[in-house]
């Protein structure tokens, strides 16, 4: 190797990177920002590409960036939108984007069978299947008779400090859950619930997957997480059990995935094609089969868990207040 090869090599790398990007732009494309886990979303996009010939350019959210990732990016790109479709693994951020005027109306014909509670009446977003909030319990550390059955059971003094886990309530589905409790119970009782959790030494960890892993490893006795996380641990043979809270009362929170058209995106026609595809019953069924979604919005299982009745606009209104309270409570 000559002395200059290293310089040539590095220059070539930049050139190749540019060529790769130019090639990527040649076919009709659609740009999607999604917070759905890459291993679930990628096969869906590949199938869409094969079916339509439209190339999907996806950006995935990472747990590291929390909501500062895709939603922040959409917000900062407001003046010059780069995305066409936003596929969120939950709903609160979609409502925030709608409130900020970052979404556009599209009434997809594929959203017809979706219940009105899970789609926007004006067509700013549509629901796609749902996950629910569950309590995950380590079966080697907790006896069956002690399994919690309600959210209030998490406040039982029998759980010592550091034995109950909760993902950071400023982000993701935990933030949505907190806002839903604010909307459903009222701000004061909901805040009191979290204050009591904090007083009992709840462990605030880096994400729902971390709650799952720590319960599965026995570092926590129990915690709040999502169905897909709990299912993954059960499938992996970990000593855990998943409990739907409040089945004798108001039910557990079901959080739909949401699909929305980004206002002013560069490829609106392809975006509509992708939204139609994502909202199809086949895609929903595939995601349920893969274990990412817990159930279909179109055909709720007859023996499924009891769900909370939620007014999503009220949840969106409570989001900021809930975040401010919980930031002051837990992040200090």
């Amino acid at each position: 190797m000559s002395k200059h090869n290293i310089l040539y090599l590095a220059s070539m790398c930049f050139l190749l990177l540019s060529l790769a990007a130019c090639k990527a732009q040649a076919a009709p494309t659609v740009v999607v920002y999604t917070s759905v886990d890459q291993p679930y979303a990628e096969p869906i996009f590949e199938a869409f590409e094969q079916q339509t010939g439209i190339r999907v350019l996806a950006i995935y959210d990472a747990e590291a960036a929390k909501t500062t990732g895709l939603v922040s990016r959409l917000s900062t790109e407001r003046a010059n939108p780069q995305a066409d479709v936003f596929w969120s693994s939950e709903i609160a951020q979609t409502l925030w984007l709608q409130d900020q005027g970052l979404l556009a109306v599209y009434q997809s014909p594929m959203a017809e069978g979706i219940p009105a509670a899970f789609r926007d009446s004006q067509g700013y977003w549509s629901g796609l299947g749902y996950r629910t909030r569950v309590i995950i319990v380590n079966t080697t550390r907790v006896a069956p008779e002690d399994y919690p059955q309600t959210l209030a059971d998490l406040l039982d003094p029998k759980w010592g400090a550091g034995e109950v886990g909760l993902a950071n309530p400023l982000f993701g589905t935990t933030a949505t859950h907190a806002a839903a409790l604010y909307a459903s119970w009222g701000p004061q009782p909901a805040l009191a619930f979290f204050q009591q959790l904090e007083a009992q030494g709840v462990r605030i960890v880096d994400g729902n997957s971390v709650v799952r892993d720590m319960v599965a490893n026995g570092d926590l006795k129990l915690g709040l997480t999502d169905t897909d996380d709990a299912e993954a641990a059960i499938q992996a043979g970990k000593p855990v059990v998943m409990i739907f809270p409040d089945q004798q009362g108001e039910g557990t929170l079901a959080i739909p995935n949401t699909v929305a058209l980004v206002a002013g995106g560069p490829n609106p026609t392809q975006a509509q094609a992708l939204i139609d595809y994502l909202l199809s019953p086949e895609v929903e069924a595939q995601l349920v089969l893969d274990g990412f979604l817990y159930g279909s919005l179109r055909t709720p299982a007859a023996e499924g868990p009891v769900m909370m009745s939620v007014d999503w606009s009220a949840v969106a209104q409570q989001m900021e207040a809930a975040k401010r309270d919980l930031q002051a409570l837990f992040l200090r």
Binding site: T29, V32, Q38, A58, A62, Q82, A232
Partner: peptide, 17 residues
């Protein structure tokens, strides 16, 4: 859009479990 790095994939895999 359409590009990814190993670091991002690693973090996504961590979350996926």
């Amino acid at each position: 859009p359409g590009l990814g790095t190993v670091a991002l994939r690693l973090y996504n895999l961590l979350h996926y479990g």
